[in-house]
């Protein structure tokens, strides 16, 4: 009996978005009287962070502090259109729509500032702290709060913008099957280090090395969180999760979530994650989607590591002690 150590790796190419009949998302943005830019979206933040990313994209495009941006995900009856947050499409589609809306709003903002300051809009720039200033004459400028008030009460202007990103439908070419199903693809590789106990069949994942090419990581801390949380879910699928674990009789098996196995806080591997940034030409500030793909590569990486450790080739998830032991029996009789 021994604890056998093995290493394995696996890679994933993952599409960003889809185009079943066209894939649009819209964003609307407007300034309040005090210069807060409200982004209206129907895209839902379920923890993946789309509100943060939308605010970052708007702040960057407007040239204003992120504190001047408020994201309102309202509801799908009254908001602009969004196909939904799935297919790892949110950052790409919504980010692009927000940038388009914010660019239109920025142009209006600079026009009003030009009127207020009696200069040409083309000579104005934003300084990122909330001021719109005359290039080369830093003392001539106006704060966004004063500008928004002036727009409302003096100039009768609405500082606002509309944005949409549409991935157009792409039908397959009948002869070849060729089509353009996604907008770009993200790539990743995970290497797993495992130990297999050849007496109990228990597999422990000791370390995961995650390398991700996601265009540009717009928020590196959140992207890391996505990668490592997703890898945890990959470990969970690889080693634990099933509604039908092996029992001699079904009625001995689990009936509810209390008996549904998942790794707990004591079962987590040490993770090392890094990003390779190769901005996508059609991505918002170069970003591709990173969501669903994060649970993918760890699973075959762990299967390969088990094979490396003990020679057992498993092709059915989860890689339970029972399956490992059956595999060892088949190898060694």
């Amino acid at each position: 009996m021994a604890r056998l150590r093995g290493r394995g790796y696996a890679s994933v190419n993952y599409p960003t978005g889809m185009n079943l009949g066209g894939d649009p998302s819209q964003a609307l943005i407007h300034a309040t009287t005090t210069g807060t830019f409200v982004i209206s979206l129907s895209s839902v933040d379920l923890g993946q962070g789309i509100k943060t990313i939308a605010a970052q994209c708007a702040a960057e495009t407007l040239g204003l502090p992120i504190g001047n941006v408020l994201v309102d995900t309202a509801d799908t009856d009254t908001g602009p259109h969004c196909m939904g947050t799935f297919a790892s499409r949110g950052t790409h589609r919504v980010g692009n729509a927000v940038i388009m809306a914010a660019a239109e709003a920025r142009a209006v903002m600079l026009e009003v500032a030009a009127e207020e300051l009696e200069v040409d809009a083309g000579d104005l720039e934003t300084d990122g702290t909330g001021f719109i200033r005359l290039k080369g004459a830093q003392e001539k400028g106006i704060h966004i709060t004063d500008l928004a008030l002036a727009a409302h009460f003096k100039h009768g202007r609405t500082i606002s913008g509309r944005g949409i990103y549409l991935k157009e439908p792409s039908a397959p070419v009948p002869e070849t099957g060729e089509m353009d199903p996604d907008s770009c693809q993200a790539h990743a590789c995970t290497a797993a280090v495992v130990e297999v106990d050849d007496e109990t069949g228990v597999v422990e994942v000791l370390e995961l090395y995650n390398a991700y090419e996601v265009g540009r990581a717009l928020n590196p801390a959140m992207a890391t969180q996505q990668v490592e949380g997703g890898a945890w879910m990959g470990v969970s699928h690889a080693l634990f999760e099933t509604t039908e674990p092996y029992y001699p009789r079904r009625d001995h098996g689990p009936r509810d979530f209390a008996g549904y196995l998942m790794p707990g806080p004591a079962d987590i591997p040490l993770q090392h994650s890094l990003f390779l940034e190769r901005p996508a030409a059609n991505g918002p500030y170069g970003a591709k989607g990173i969501g669903e793909m994060t649970a993918n590569a760890p699973i075959p990486a762990i299967a390969n590591a088990i094979f490396d450790a003990c020679g057992v080739r498993l092709d059915t998830m989860p890689f339970t002690p029972e399956r490992v032991l059956r595999g060892l029996d088949a190898l060694h009789g």
């Binding site: 969180q225 490592e228 806080p265 004591a266």
Partner: peptide, 20 residues
């Protein structure tokens, strides 16, 4: 100690490490 304290609490997103 921290791992033991949170061992009765399920998280499906973070992979637990950031919580610890």
């Amino acid at each position: 100690d921290v791992v033991e304290a949170i061992s009765g609490n399920v998280c499906r997103c973070t992979g637990y490490r950031p919580i610890v």
